[in-house]
Write a protein that binds this DNA or RNA. Structure first.
Lengths: 141, 141
DNA sequence: TTACGCTCTGTATCAACTACAGGCTCAAGA
DNA sequence: TCTTGAGCCTGTAGTTGATACAGAGCGTAA
């Protein structure tokens, strides 16, 4: 069950997708927004990828998994591509992102507390007075 | 510096916006998607709001602040509007949402740990080898 | 030959807004 | 009375990060 060879021995879109786990449509999206380079094409216009593309896409996906926005990733890639990336510059980007993550965690913990407290006051019966609804209504404004 | 009276003594869009803190454009958005009712209009087509609208919009905004999606809020409002909302139904919606919030917190904490650890390995000098970049690159794949 | 799987492009959709453009109404000040 | 400015109206486009589909072309295996 070997897949037919790719044109010119390069990787096709589906190969890149499988090797990275990235959705096949997402790859094209990253190309149109310039996060991934436009790959060379076969005579009939088929994209031909190399291991370079695999590496870069893996980089992007790991950064996404850490919650970096595509714009932040663009910044990281620019530093890498420039070859002149200093540790300090990268660390600044990452530190800023870490601070954002921590803030989001703080926000969510506050939300968690409010929700858990309110739900805890709930009788769980068919009572028409619901503490959750009341907490959301003007009565507690 | 008293603002001119609203037509027919109702609230105008800007009044509702100021009383609730909700962006004026967002109010119209909530109306078009049916989260807020279409308000009555003045003869010239101006929206006229009442305190009912203020209450409902406050409800929506508090729920948003707790991270409920607009769809979840629609569900909560349906229960409230129906008059037949049992405590149990509401609690189920809220509990489900709480679980989502907790999962998001868990995810972010994992991200936080990875980021903090990686950044901690950073020399902060101008060194061209950056542990952050390396963590994102194939080398550690 | 024909079927199938993959490719191509362009466009639409999602959440939850936000921000215009272009035109109307209304009340107050000169 | 006229003008100015604030606020109103509608429709539409842009944001982020994808995802999905239509309609067409290509290429290989049976």
């Amino acid at each position: 069950m070997v897949r037919p060879n790719s044109p010119h021995r390069g990787l096709r879109r589906i190969d890149l997708s499988r090797q990275t786990g990235c959705n096949i449509e997402t790859i094209r999206y990253y190309e149109t927004i310039g996060l991934m380079p436009d790959p060379p094409r076969s005579p009939k216009g088929y994209r031909i990828y190399s291991n370079e593309h695999v590496s870069r896409l893996n980089f992007v996906m790991r950064a996404r998994a850490l919650g970096f926005t595509l714009d932040e990733i663009r910044g990281l890639l620019a530093l890498v591509d420039g070859g002149r990336h200093s540790c300090a510059e990268v660390r600044d980007l990452a530190s800023q992102h870490l601070e954002n993550v921590r803030e989001k965690i703080r926000d969510l913990r506050r939300v968690e507390t409010v929700l858990a407290t309110t739900i805890g006051q709930c009788s769980g019966t068919d009572a028409p007075d619901c503490p959750v609804i009341e907490a959301l209504s003007d009565s507690l404004a």
